[in-house]
Nucleic acid binder design. Structure first.
Length: 483
RNA sequence: GCCCCCAUCGUCCAGAGGCCUAGGACGCCGCCCUUUCAAGGCGGAAACGGGGAUUCGAAUUCCCCUGGGGGCACCA
């Protein structure tokens, strides 16, 4: 099996394309075949190097390695269509020689008029084949005279193209609805249909796995393949991804660029796992599984036909699962840079030790890597910023001042600064004041961490150390008098 | 306008004639655990779009309707 992912660098890699790439990759890995990456950049004007890099970065981030193609090389040359123009022209010439294609001199304006008219009359809007009957000699003469022309495929008429789609079953298109489409533009450059098909043939692609938006173009590709004297590949058309409103996933649903997910604190493993579930299932009732398990079970023929809505909530949940599953060192390696970026400075040795100690506790209560900084910020800043809502909810309450005073007294007398000792001291404080944990401990939490949401209190205090803990308690106590 | 595709809880999937009083996951709602937030445990609400047909029997087959999606370029 040889499959390919062939993005055109006209935009950032988005989640829909990422899913197509994943399914191609899974199919190849499952079958022990090759996954090929090609750049469909025939449209020079719209492509850009930035987008091209983004695609490669995205695939690498997801761990979808390719065996052949762009940057990787292989037996077929460049794998960038912009560098294969002569080959497409060569094929085009051959097709014309065999009268499988013909020159068309109709102007864009004429074409437009006729299309409109056809539509108004309820006929298929495709090209009417006017230039198809031009004698070869006349054709040549007009071209020699410098008249602009495109090359069109002579679609067999009457006729019909039937193929067996792996996910959709038998699909048929009557040629009444397949126009004599353009292969070569008047400037001699190939259209997508030509370039893509020639590459698929040249590269020996056996399975074309792509989005459903190309389903109705498939007859064109099959016709070109046949005209080249080659055997068409097997096709598998994936249903499209939808937004929450059931419409095709697009920018108006928020950021659909893959790199937004990377920057948003998602783990590639989680993303891959989640996306694999859109239109496919593991069997059993499992929803979380490893990449190896996925590869082992994946089968194109198990893919579902109906479109799937991309559900951020479930992705976020799954990301939490994967975060909790990370080894301690791995978790630290992935979050430390975020913490440092948040602070705007690197952590020193002691601070790193502190982070290492608290990290397992924050790991349990995160769904996105990007949540880490906020959870540990109180450990590394001099000036604590208090969350206003927490302040009003907790510090302003009647019993809070007494609790803070007592807590400060007890903690100030503490011999050893350990989680256990801190817990004992504070529990004794609760007993003394006859306060429940909520009333007595929350003020301490807010005073010391700045928020009513934090890692576990006693561990947090231990990590923060006695000096800063006492200072913060005192600062809040001072504040009461100021009010 | 024309062609094509699709249709099970709000969402993602399971279900390939009787195993379905339709199963799992996310989310949601309760309860438990608990110093907060999470995590975890237990429980709950929640779906076969409608109508015909075939059959002893249909979520599963067929037809129509409706709804949704995709495509119809010298874009990819």
């Amino acid at each position: 099996m040889r499959v390919r992912f062939a993005p055109s660098p006209t935009g950032y890699l988005h989640v829909g394309s990422a899913r197509t790439a994943l399914f191609n990759w899974l199919a190849a890995r499952h079958a022990g075949g090759e996954f090929i990456l090609r750049s469909d950049d025939t449209d020079q004007a719209r492509g850009s190097d930035e987008y091209y890099r983004d695609v490669l970065d995205g695939l690498r981030w997801l761990g979808l390695d390719w065996d052949e193609g762009v940057e990787e090389g292989g037996p077929h040359g460049s794998y960038r269509q912009s560098e294969r123009l002569e080959r497409y022209q060569e094929v085009a010439e051959q097709l014309r020689d065999r009268t499988a294609a013909y020159l068309c001199f109709c102007s864009p304006e004429e074409l437009d008029d006729r299309r409109r008219q056809a539509q108004a009359e309820g006929r298929p809007p495709g090209y009417d084949g006017r230039c198809r009957t031009l004698a070869g000699a006349e054709s040549q003469a007009r071209r020699a005279a410098g008249e602009a022309a495109v090359l069109r495929l002579a679609v067999p008429r009457p006729g019909e193209t039937v193929f067996d789609d792996v996910v959709r079953g038998e699909v048929r298109f009557g040629h009444d609805h397949v126009e004599d489409f353009v292969l070569l533009r008047s400037d001699g450059t190939p259209t997508y249909h030509l370039a893509s098909t020639v590459d698929d043939v040249d590269y020996g692609i056996t399975h074309v796995v792509r989005g459903e938006d190309l389903l109705s173009s498939t007859p064109k590709h099959i016709l070109i393949t046949l005209a080249m004297g080659a055997e068409p590949p097997i096709y598998a058309h994936l249903s499209l991804l939808m937004g929450p409103d059931g419409k095709k996933l697009s920018k108006r649903h928020g950021d659909t660029a893959l790199n937004a997910y990377r920057e948003g604190g998602f783990l590639p493993e989680a993303f891959v796992n989640y996306v694999a579930l859109l239109g496919w299932n593991f069997g059993d009732d499992e929803t979380v599984f490893t990449r190896a398990e996925m590869v082992e079970r994946f089968d194109l023929s198990d893919i579902q036909k109906n479109p799937a809505v991309f559900d951020n909530e479930k992705l976020i949940w799954m990301n939490g699962v994967y975060i909790r599953d990370l080894g301690a060192d791995e978790f630290i390696a992935r979050t430390l840079p975020l913490v440092e970026a948040d602070l705007g400075r690197p952590l020193d040795e002691d601070e790193r030790a502190t982070y290492r100690a608290i990290a397992p506790l924050v790991q349990e209560r995160m769904k996105l890597l990007t949540e880490a900084p906020a959870q540990v910020r109180f450990l590394f800043v001099e000036e604590l910023e208090y969350d206003p809502a927490s302040w009003h909810k907790v510090i302003v309450k009647p019993d809070s001042r007494a609790a803070l005073e007592a807590a400060k007294a007890r903690l100030g007398d503490l011999g050893e600064w350990t989680t256990d000792a801190i817990e004992q001291a504070l529990r004794a404080m609760l007993e003394e004041l006859e306060l429940n944990a909520r009333k007595g401990l929350q003020p301490v939490r807010v005073a010391v961490t700045g928020s009513s949401v934090s890692p576990p209190l006693f561990e947090s205090l231990e990590a923060l150390g006695p000096e800063r803990t006492l200072v913060r308690l005192q600062e809040v106590l001072d504040g009461y008098d100021g009010q």
